[in-house]
Design a protein around this nucleic acid. Sequence first.
RNA 1: AACUCCAUGGUGUAACGGUAGCACAACAGAUUUUGGUUCUGUUUGUCAAGGUUCGAAUCCUUGUGGAGUUGCCA
Length: 559
Amino acid sequence: MSVPSSPSKDFIREIIDEDLSSGKHDSTVTRFPPEPNGYLHIGHAKSICLNFGIAEEYGGRCHLRFDDTNPSKEDVEYVDSIKEDIQWLGFDWGDHLYFASDYFDKLYKWAKHLIDEGKAYVDDQTFDEIRKGRGDLTTPGTDSPFRDRSAEENLELFKAMKKGEFDDGSKVLRAKIDMAHPNLNMRDPILYRIARAHHHRTGDEWCIYPMYDFTHGQSDALEYVTHSLCTLEFENHRPLYEWFLDNLPVPSQPRQIEFSRLNLNYTVMSKRKLLQLVEDNHVNGWDDPRMPTISGLRRRGYPPEAIRNFCKTIGITKFQSTNDMALLESGVRDVLNRDARRFMAVLDPLKVVITNYPEGQSEEIETVANPENPDAGMRHFSFSREIYIERDDFMEDPPKKYFRLSPGNEVRLRNAYFIKCEEVIKDADGNITELHCTYDTDTPRGENPSDGRKVKGVVHWVSAAHSVDATVRLYDRLFSVESPDSAEGTFLDHLNPDSLTEMPNAKLEGNLAGVPNGETVQFERLGYFCVDKESSAENRVFNRTVGLRDSWAKVKAKS
RNA sequence: AACUCCAUGGUGUAACGGUAGCACAACAGAUUUUGGUUCUGUUUGUCAAGGUUCGAAUCCUUGUGGAGUUGCCA
């Protein structure tokens, strides 16, 4: 009913505005129609945000409808995961959960209707004969020898097909349209095939199943969907979609509108390829944090809000674009910077002994949990004589703009004192094993030294005696090239060998032991990290969601 | 070489015949107890050629480039 006014809208929302103001429709009904044959990925999120988003904005509704017309590929496992992912993204279909299989009876009647009208026939040709008869892109097809069977004969045959009197694949029901049509979809498309497959909902009730084309538009019409939004590859199907609406006594006239699917660089999006990554163990399951699946992004620690914002930002057009992963990550940082609690964690520890700090002594430090959000409150942790710092926060022979710790140099320990490196301890092989430093009692948190001296470097740390151990998994892009789909060789040739790095000896601030599974926090100066589902009190596991912007890395890379 | 669709900075996306704007990225600077955040500034664009018009990213023509379609998949 309401037409939200905003500065600019995509072409689909413009069409909806027109349909509302012209009186063509007085409410808006959309639908998200996945086939339950795999896990949802971020490309589906684009469609979900579009369809459910429009329903919210226009005060309409969005149906969740499972397009389950090909039982050999489908399973309830996928139905469940799809529901979970949509809800996690923050959308709700309310009472409007549907299955195309709910319409099998209706569709069967409509098929008989077409037969009665002389607009459908049973074809006995083999698979190959049908294919050959279809012609190709530049040559028209030829009529099937069975094309002119009488309506009576067709009806008997079709009923017999349903009763199971014929073998799988031996006959099909086809629409009688035009074998010379320039659009191949209109060359007498197949409506029903015989397939004795157990359906996850209808069981063994049917041995004939309707095709996508004979199902989708009619399902939309039955649900009074006003705008049926799908991706570009269905563009050529629209004439057929409309042919069924025109030739069947459907209760409403939905309109199909196509938009471009989401592409992201440095990853693949096709179900087939994602399946291959899982089956060949290039990743650890559908929810591997490197996967572009919704479940993978969730496990990676991406907030649903960031995914929704991303979908809003990339917009809806018919242009086949490839979006930059950096845009997604930027949105993830935005949300997490605002929401994530801060902690300190050392991934690659180097022990530091503060030689002038009394043995056996410790003190409690208080600081904010999140500087961006005062409501997050305070946190407390301990400082003591032995601490860990990040190994790459020390260099024995530093380059010019290196602000961190080096021999004789002084840095600020984050939330604590200045320390100065006095001595580097090495093992027999020359590896640095320990640093001996002194601290300045004049420089606790919140105070600068009375002599006015300053330091440029701030280094995070954890108290050795108060730390907890953890494994931290660092994730990088799954592929090393921007478009693995079009790169030389197969996409598997371009897997990034360093997409996963395990840091098995990480030392965490003690407070991190209490963070629940699934929460994403910031490890100060390092990035955002999410408690993995495999994490336990005995064996803590964190996944890096995304690193912080790192301008030092850029400086370093240049030199 | 059929039909359909698409073309705006590096990547996306606005501008609906009237100043080409925004985000990300990049670069420079300021602030900073996160080399984070925040703030300021800079660079970069209408696929090409014609036409219509006072005026074209926008309308028309042609070309070029890209995508989809020859499943009893969706």
